[in-house]
Amino acid sequence: MLVLISGVLLIIIGIWAMLTRKNIIRIIIGFSIVDTGVHMIIVAIGYIKNATAPIIDSAVNTSSDISGAVHVNSLIVDPVPSALVLTAIVIGLAVTALLLSFAIRLYKVSGSLNIDDYEELKW
């Protein structure tokens, strides 16, 4: 619950940064803050009270029936959000690097990082 609220606050702060800052690098920092907030929300949704990590080792209480099938008795957290966030973080780094390389090329070509200097798409 607490982590959920702080994730929402991080998303709002990141969008605030993207809306008010003029510098392109600062806008990309806002994007990465939004990224972290979304990951926090997804992980917080998968949490279960007093549960252990989704790895079936000696810390997890298991029992097996006659046919040999193993049943997990104690609580573990939901593994699906973990699996989603795991890949999303790596993709987030690659996308951030792509945005930054766009910014570097813009600076090399036109010598400015201020978003107000790019008026081609304004109307």
Binding site: T36, V43, A51, A53, V77, V90
Partner: peptide
């Protein structure tokens, strides 16, 4: 929050 896989990734990447 008991998600060690995510914690490892975030610590090295983020």
């Amino acid at each position: 929050l008991a998600a060690p896989d995510v914690a490892m990734t975030e610590a090295t990447i983020g």
